[in-house]
């Protein structure tokens, strides 16, 4: 660069030579600029070195990550295997040898007991909790629909105890007594079905109809046929339905102000307790059989 400039200075007077020098300067400058700013070899080299360093770092980090994952998986596998082993040992715990009798894994003809014997010895027997007896739902008629079981035959959740010794004496068969004792509670009709049953059923039906109705427009099968006819309602269906007012007001007058509560009493027929128990207990008409 320096010598080029001096060269140009020295060659200033001659026009031709000056042009040549100018070209020289421009060439040099172009080369310098390209190397410095556009394609800097050292910069590129550094960049590529940095990239390869990053690559190494990433490769290492990823390998580490994969290794960690593999280790975790291995650990989980081992744990699962161990648990399976313990469970199996727990199930086969009855094969453990006792003080008196050696178990099948502890053969007296062999020098050492089977390793499985040790496994069985190590394992601790855990008593499983008794399965909880499910509470039967209330026999409310509203929810008989989704669970039909409740109205089918009663299922005995707890089996009656067996191997009871037969008592001496004029007693009934044990099965019979137990069946009587463990039979599920049977409510009387009065208790099992409330009076409002009918009303509620109807309400429910209306709700269902509301919910399940696909189209609100009525189904009109012969719409064309009746198109031009005006529908004339019957007197019977168009007049107001109700009791005739004659005699009602005057003969059976009632004064609501004298009522003690706002609701009317409901008249209920008493049920015959005896009938609903017919054939189900030992007594017949109050007498022990």
């Amino acid at each position: 660069m320096q010598d080029c400039v001096s060269n140009q200075k020295s060659l200033q007077p001659g026009g031709e030579v000056a042009g040549k020098g100018l070209g020289n300067i421009q060439r040099r400058w172009r080369g310098y600029k390209i190397r410095k700013y556009c394609f800097n070899y050292y910069y590129l080299k550094n960049y590529l070195r940095a990239v390869s360093e990053t690559n190494e770092a990433i490769r290492e980090a990823l390998d580490e990550f994969a290794e960690m994952k593999a280790r975790e998986k291995k650990k989980a596998d081992l744990e699962r295997e161990e648990k399976e082993r313990t469970d199996r040992a727990r199930k086969m715990h009855y094969l453990l040898s006792t003080k008196q009798i050696p178990g099948i894994y502890n053969s007296p003809f062999r020098k050492e007991p089977d390793p499985w014997e040790m496994e069985l010895r190590k394992v601790r027997l855990v008593r499983e909790p008794r399965p909880q007896v499910k509470q039967t739902c209330s026999a409310c008629p509203e929810d008989w629909l989704p669970c039909p079981r409740h109205h089918s035959l009663p299922q005995a959740e707890i089996l009656p105890p067996i191997n009871r010794k037969k008592c001496q004496g004029p007693f009934r068969q044990v099965e019979e007594v137990l069946a009587q004792r463990y039979k599920p509670m049977e409510l009387t009709l009065r208790a099992s079905e409330p009076f409002t049953d009918f009303k509620e059923e109807r309400e429910e039906l209306r709700r269902q109809e509301c919910a399940c109705n696909i189209s609100d427009s009525m189904f009109l099968p012969f719409s064309n046929y009746h198109k031009n006819k005006k529908y004339l309602p019957l007197i019977h269906s168009s007049s107001k339905y109700g009791p005739a007012s004659y005699g009602y007001q005057s003969f059976r007058d009632e004064n609501p102000r004298k009522w003690i509560c706002s609701k009317d009493f409901q008249s209920v027929l008493p049920s015959f307790e005896l009938f609903s128990k017919f054939g189900k207990s030992y007594s017949k008409a109050g007498q022990i059989i």
Binding site: V51, T54, N55, E56, A57, I58, R59, L62
Partner: peptide
């Protein structure tokens, strides 16, 4: 992606 080391990871 290159600067993040994505190319090396992809090649692996």
């Amino acid at each position: 992606i290159v600067n993040a080391g994505g190319v090396a990871a992809m090649i692996d």
